[in-house]
Simulated scan of single mutants.
Amino acid sequence: MNTETTRTAQTPETKRTNEAVVLTARREGVLVITLNRPHVRNAVDQALARAVDAALTLLETDPDLEAGVLTGAGGHFCSGMDLKAFPDEGVPRVADRGLAGLTRARRSKPLIAAVEGAAVAGGFELVLACDLITAADTAFFALPEVARGLIASEGGAIRLPGRLPHHLAVEMLLTASPLAAADAARHGLVNRLTGEGEALDAALALAARVRAHSPQAVRITRQVVEVTRGLDAAAAFAVQDPLTAPVFDTASAAEGALAFSEKRPPAWTP
């Protein structure tokens, strides 16, 4: 198993400990991106935002990488925007790609959130921007922005009502109430609920299942889900069909059919 680790985006606070604010590791075609400011529950400042954006760019551009996992160090996922840095740095967005280069980004490869501990405020918005979610049974989610005089404007107020029952989502947004991972799983927000310390392994297992299938079909399927959300059926088919029609004439489609008839695993090409 390839577990090459890369240290990126050192800042004065991290140079003292020779640690980077984001760590990346390759694991058999999967890029594990670890938020690494555990002393502040991985709060997002500008340095961390730029480092996550660089890691996501690597995931998108490297043909050997087929999926990503986003997680946090030190027993927590992310406590959101670094409020101590906010007066000087503002919201840690990257260009037009949103918080940490993720919440408004256009992506083509699956990204899985592996959540331990707190995923709150902008941290929860990073989770909501991912395609799949694994979480330890000790994890919890919250959007407490209204308690800070702020708004969950990096996808929280937009995405959460479509992921949970409407009134539960609105209650979280208006009261800053937390949601335990077990309750999130019960409502379908979490794909895999694990024991403490096991969310990353569950995310890697999900990534392996994704990687077993045609990379092209996975990318296009993910794109269809993204671009048709909220459309009525007629509009959704009109957007979907130009994306999916060419896939049926590809080598991957032919290989999938042939492998099925020959009762063997398909040999996919990128």
Rank of each mutant, 00 (worst) to 15 (best):
H39R: 15
G155W: 07
R192Y: 12
H166K: 15
T228V: 14
E13K: 15
L206I: 12
P265H: 14
A185N: 14
R229W: 15
E145N: 15
V146Q: 06
G230N: 08
G197K: 10
T34V: 13
G80W: 00
V227H: 05
A234V: 11
R186N: 15
V94C: 00
A185I: 12
L111E: 02
A208Y: 00
A51P: 00
R211M: 09
A245E: 05
A136Q: 12
T6H: 03
V170T: 11
V224W: 01
E198N: 04
G122L: 03
A185F: 14
R16F: 15
L126A: 05
G74R: 04
A118C: 03
L206G: 01
L31V: 06
L200P: 11
R26K: 10
V22P: 00
G156E: 09
R148V: 05
A47H: 03
G90N: 06
V170Q: 14
R264C: 07
R219D: 08
A73Y: 01
A121R: 01
R26E: 02
A113V: 06
G195T: 09
R93E: 13
S177L: 14
P242T: 07
V40F: 09
T221V: 02
G256E: 06
H39Q: 15
A129T: 06
L243N: 05
A152Y: 03
D201A: 15
F86L: 10
A234W: 06
P265M: 12
T24E: 09
A139I: 10
G230Q: 07
G117H: 02
G74A: 06
T5R: 10
V22C: 01
A254Y: 08
D45T: 02
L160K: 11
G68D: 02
A157K: 14
R41P: 00
P110E: 09
L174Q: 15
D82K: 06
P87M: 05
E28S: 04
V227G: 01
L48D: 02
L132H: 14
D201E: 13
L174F: 13
P265N: 12
Q216P: 03
A114E: 08
H39P: 00
E255Y: 07
P144M: 11
E60K: 02
A180K: 15
L58S: 09
V127A: 10
L179S: 15
R163E: 15
L35K: 08
T221Y: 03
A233K: 05
I133R: 06
R7A: 03
L132P: 01
V227P: 00
L23R: 05
P144L: 13
W268Y: 09
A236H: 07
A100P: 00
A95N: 09
R107A: 04
Q10N: 07
P63H: 11
V69G: 02
L258A: 15
R107S: 04
D82I: 04
S108H: 13
P92C: 03
P266G: 12
E19P: 01
I33H: 06
L132D: 07
L48A: 07
N2S: 12
V218W: 00
E66V: 10
A119K: 00
P178F: 13
N36W: 09
R7I: 12
E154S: 10
N42E: 08
F141L: 15
G122P: 06
A25R: 13
R104T: 04
T3Q: 13
P242Y: 10
G230D: 07
L173T: 12
Q223A: 13
R7G: 01
C130F: 06
R97I: 00
G188F: 10
K263F: 11
N18R: 14
N42L: 06
A267T: 14
E66G: 13
T194L: 08
L204C: 04
